[in-house]
Simulated scan of single mutants.
Amino acid sequence: MFKISSLFKFLTGCFLFFFVFTSCKEEEKPLSVAEMQINSLQNDHDKWYRYHKTNIDLSSDFLPLGETGDTIGKKAFLEAIITGEFMVFARKPEGDREKYQLIRLREDADDGISYNIAADTYTEYRYLQMEGKTFPEFHFKDLNGRSFSSDELRGKTLVVKTWFIKCKPCIDEMPQLNELVKEYSDREDVVFLSLSDDPEEELEEFLSKTEFRYEVIPNSQPFTKDSLGLTMYPTHLIVDGEGKIRKVAHSAPKMIAFLRKFL
C-alpha cells in the first residue's frame, strides 16, 4: 500500500512539473521576423553595415520613431544615434515617407556597430544644425570677373556646391549638376554657385577640358571652412530668398530631390 501511494505521488508530481513547464513554454512569445533580423544584424558588423547603407538614408525626410515606436523629432533621433547606443531599423513606410526606429544595441552587440553608426550620423547631425540658420554674408567674384554678393542675390534661391579639382566624387557628379542647371535655365530667380578651393589658373585649365555650368568661385577655402565650417567635399547647400539655409546635403541626388520639392 505504501509503495503504490508513493508511486502515485511521484507520478502526480511529474505530471504537474510537465504541465507547468510546457505551459510556460507555450506562453513564450515567438520572435517576429523583424526581431530575428535585428538580432542577426547586431551580431555581425558587416551584415549591419550593408543593411544600414542599403536601407537607411538619414538625410531624407523620414519619420523618426523612438524605442517604443512613438514619433520623436529628427534632432532628438540623431542625437540618440550619436551616443552609439542605438542602431536604426527601417519600418514599413508611411505613404512615400520612410519610417525609421531606434533600436537599442545589446551589450553583446558587435563593437564596431556603435562606433561606425555614431561617426556616420555626425555629418547628418551637423548638417541638420545648419538648416534654418542664416547663410554667412559674402562677396564673391567668379572666373569671368562677375561679382556676387548677399545683398545682390536677396530674393533669389541660391544653390551652392563646395569642391576641389582632386576630389573625385566632386567631379563625378558634375554631369548631373550640368543637367540641373539646364533644367532651371529659364529661372532667373535660381543661381548656381560653386565654391572651389583651387586657384584661378588651375581651375581655368581644368574647366577647359571639363564642362561645369555652375558659376565658379576660386580660392574659396577660407569661406567654406571658416565661415561655413564645412570640411567634407562635396557639400551642397540650398539658400532661400531670405538668406536662410534650407538644405545641406553631401550628395547631388539628395540636394536635387529637395530642390525640386522646394521650388
Rank of each mutant, 00 (worst) to 15 (best):
S114V: 10
S114T: 10
S114G: 06
Y115V: 15
Y115P: 01
N116S: 14
N116M: 13
I117A: 03
I117H: 06
A118D: 07
A118H: 03
A119E: 14
D120G: 12
T121L: 04
T121Q: 03
Y122T: 11
Y122Q: 09
Y122L: 11
T123V: 06
E124G: 03
Y125Q: 01
R126E: 14
Y127I: 01
Y127N: 09
L128R: 10
M130V: 02
M130W: 02
M130G: 04
M130Q: 08
E131K: 05
G132A: 00
G132L: 03
K133M: 11
K133R: 10
T134G: 03
T134Q: 13
T134S: 10
F135H: 12
P136K: 10
E137W: 07
E137K: 13
E137N: 12
F138K: 12
H139I: 07
H139G: 06
F140H: 14
D142N: 15
D142C: 08
L143D: 06
R146Y: 01
R146H: 08
R146Q: 15
S147A: 15
F148A: 06
D151P: 00
D151E: 15
D151Y: 13
E152I: 10
L153C: 04
L153F: 01
G155L: 05
K156E: 04
T157E: 05
T157D: 04
V159Y: 10
V159P: 02
V160I: 13
K161W: 01
K161Q: 13
T162V: 02
F164Q: 07
I165N: 02
K166W: 12
C167L: 07
K168T: 14
K168N: 11
P169G: 07
P169I: 04
C170Q: 02
C170A: 11
C170H: 00
I171F: 00
D172Y: 00
D172R: 15
E173D: 13
E173R: 05
P175F: 00
Q176P: 09
L177Y: 00
E179I: 05
V181D: 04
K182C: 01
K182M: 07
E183Y: 07
E183P: 00
Y184K: 08
Y184R: 02
Y184F: 12
Y184P: 00
S185H: 09
D186Y: 06
R187V: 04
E188P: 00
E188W: 10
D189M: 07
V190M: 12
V190P: 01
V190D: 04
V190Y: 04
V191H: 03
